[in-house]
Amino acid sequence: MTAKISHHEALIYVMVTMSAADRTMTDSELMKIGDIVRSLPAFSDFNEEKLVQVAEDCGELLQDEDGLDVIIDKIRESLPSQFYDTAYALAVEVAAADLEVHQEELRYLQFLRDTLDLDKLTVAAIERGARARYRTL
């Protein structure tokens, strides 16, 4: 199997794979990942200077043929189950960052919620909250 990663790295892997889902990592998405790491309590004891290296490590794994499967295995192995909804919420935040959610991103969100076995009410609440925060006139 692969080496275990920290829960911080697992959350970052979720966000990086979300950003890369449509093959385009926008500046808005990358800035959102940085903002999340700097501001959320889940990252309070994470060394911010490691963010770029963790993101690059995730990107390298994504280049492999079975990279997404390896990443998902690492996330599930390393992330406590009480953080599964947090991981999904962070993925939704990154998807919404550029105010456009593409079909590939929707498929990744579906894959992630199925993989993390999130219940429909939790998913709906997270997605509804993001719609409210990112709504424009």
Rank of each mutant, 00 (worst) to 15 (best):
T2K: 12
T2R: 06
T2G: 03
A3T: 08
I5A: 01
S6Q: 02
H8A: 11
H8R: 04
E9R: 02
L11C: 07
L11V: 02
M15P: 03
M15N: 04
M18P: 02
M18W: 00
S19T: 00
S19G: 15
A20V: 01
A20F: 10
R23C: 06
T26H: 06
T26F: 12
D27S: 14
D27Y: 09
D27V: 15
E29W: 02
E29Y: 04
K32H: 14
G34H: 05
G34N: 12
D35S: 15
D35N: 12
I36M: 10
R38G: 07
L40C: 01
P41N: 13
A42W: 00
A42V: 09
A42N: 01
A42R: 02
F43D: 10
S44K: 14
F46T: 05
F46W: 05
N47E: 14
E48R: 02
E48W: 07
E48L: 15
E49S: 14
E49I: 07
K50Y: 09
L51S: 03
L51C: 11
V52R: 08
V52G: 07
Q53L: 15
Q53I: 09
Q53G: 09
A55W: 02
D57M: 13
C58K: 06
C58E: 01
C58M: 01
C58L: 04
C58H: 06
E60P: 00
E60Y: 12
E60A: 05
E60R: 13
L61R: 00
Q63S: 12
E65H: 10
E65N: 09
L68N: 05
L68G: 04
V70A: 09
I71D: 05
I71L: 05
I72F: 08
K74M: 11
K74R: 15
K74W: 00
I75F: 00
E77V: 12
S78A: 08
P80L: 09
P80C: 09
P80K: 03
S81W: 07
F83K: 03
F83E: 03
Y84V: 01
Y84K: 10
D85P: 12
D85T: 03
A87W: 11
Y88G: 04
L90Y: 13
L90H: 08
L90F: 14
A91E: 07
V92P: 02
V92Y: 01
E93L: 04
E93N: 13
E93D: 14
V94A: 12
A95W: 04
A96M: 14
A97D: 06
A97S: 03
D98C: 11
D98V: 09
E100V: 15
V101W: 07
H102Q: 15
E104D: 13
E104Q: 14
E104P: 00
E104V: 04
E105V: 10
L106K: 15
R107L: 09
R107K: 10
Y108W: 08
L109Q: 10
Q110K: 14
F111E: 15
F111N: 09
L112I: 02
R113Y: 05
D114H: 11
T115M: 12
T115P: 00
L118A: 11
D119M: 07
D119G: 14
D119Q: 07
K120D: 14
K120I: 14
K120Y: 04
T122F: 03
A124Q: 11
A124H: 14
A125K: 14
E127C: 06
E127H: 07
R128V: 00
R128G: 06
G129Q: 08
A130T: 01
T136L: 12
L137A: 15
